[in-house]
Amino acid sequence: MGVVFREANRDEVPEIVALLRDDVLGQGREAATLDPYFAAFDQMQAERGNLLFVGIDDSRAEGARVVATYQLTFISGLSLKAARRAQIESVRVHSDLRGQGLGEAMFADAEDRARAAGCGLLQLTTNKARNDAQRFYDRLGYVDSHVGYKKTLD
């Protein structure tokens, strides 16, 4: 499989949303219409340091397709000796390609991009129900060092 990681294009939003829906949690929380996703993509493009990436498999006879995605946000701050950090979110690999090394390649790509942006830390959160993902992050050397909280704002 020849997967190349690059910044996402607006016309790839439907394929990216399909990846977000392609698991137990995503099926129940992603919207049916694409309009809010296109609006969010446009907003992300307007923000500095908020990037969406795709993994493109161009080795198929049927043509290239989006097989992975992640969002990388760069955050400057004062803590940790004014360390610049990157936050990785919305990590997805197409369900029929999981367990084949694509996730490792995706994280290597994200780590390289974070280092190139001057980041000394790459951080993430994951849903407590994602046991396989947690084992994956552990295997990559990520440390379960913090407790995370979220609050829905109405």
Rank of each mutant, 00 (worst) to 15 (best):
4 V>Q: 08
4 V>C: 10
5 F>M: 03
5 F>H: 02
5 F>L: 00
7 E>I: 06
8 A>I: 01
8 A>V: 01
10 R>Q: 11
11 D>M: 03
12 E>H: 01
12 E>I: 00
16 I>Q: 00
20 L>F: 15
22 D>V: 07
22 D>E: 07
23 D>L: 05
23 D>W: 08
23 D>M: 06
24 V>W: 14
24 V>K: 15
27 Q>L: 08
29 R>M: 14
30 E>S: 15
30 E>F: 11
30 E>P: 10
30 E>A: 14
32 A>N: 06
32 A>D: 14
34 L>S: 10
34 L>A: 11
35 D>H: 08
35 D>L: 04
35 D>I: 10
36 P>L: 04
36 P>Q: 02
37 Y>T: 07
39 A>Y: 06
39 A>V: 12
39 A>S: 15
42 D>P: 09
43 Q>W: 10
44 M>F: 00
45 Q>M: 12
45 Q>D: 08
45 Q>F: 02
46 A>W: 03
47 E>W: 06
48 R>G: 15
51 L>V: 12
52 L>A: 00
52 L>Y: 01
53 F>T: 00
54 V>C: 01
55 G>C: 00
60 R>G: 06
60 R>H: 08
60 R>Q: 13
62 E>L: 07
63 G>K: 02
66 V>T: 05
67 V>K: 01
68 A>K: 00
70 Y>D: 14
72 L>Y: 01
72 L>M: 09
73 T>W: 01
75 I>P: 12
75 I>T: 09
76 S>M: 10
76 S>Q: 14
77 G>H: 09
77 G>D: 11
78 L>T: 14
79 S>K: 12
80 L>N: 15
80 L>R: 14
80 L>K: 14
81 K>A: 14
82 A>T: 12
86 A>Y: 00
87 Q>T: 07
88 I>R: 01
89 E>M: 03
90 S>L: 07
91 V>C: 02
92 R>Q: 08
93 V>H: 01
94 H>W: 02
95 S>F: 07
96 D>G: 06
98 R>F: 01
100 Q>Y: 04
100 Q>I: 03
101 G>F: 04
102 L>V: 13
103 G>S: 05
104 E>S: 10
104 E>A: 11
104 E>V: 15
106 M>L: 12
108 A>E: 15
108 A>R: 13
108 A>T: 14
109 D>V: 05
109 D>S: 11
112 D>P: 10
112 D>E: 15
114 A>E: 05
116 A>G: 14
116 A>N: 13
117 A>F: 13
119 C>K: 02
120 G>M: 05
121 L>G: 09
122 L>R: 05
123 Q>D: 10
123 Q>P: 03
123 Q>N: 06
126 T>C: 12
127 N>D: 15
129 A>Q: 09
131 N>F: 12
132 D>Q: 10
132 D>M: 05
133 A>K: 06
135 R>P: 03
136 F>V: 08
136 F>Y: 03
136 F>N: 02
137 Y>H: 05
137 Y>D: 03
139 R>Q: 08
140 L>Q: 09
141 G>F: 08
141 G>C: 09
141 G>H: 04
144 D>H: 13
144 D>Q: 11
144 D>Y: 09
145 S>Q: 10
145 S>G: 09
146 H>G: 11
148 G>H: 13
149 Y>T: 09
151 K>T: 14
151 K>N: 13
152 T>R: 12
152 T>C: 11
153 L>Q: 05
153 L>K: 04
154 D>Q: 12
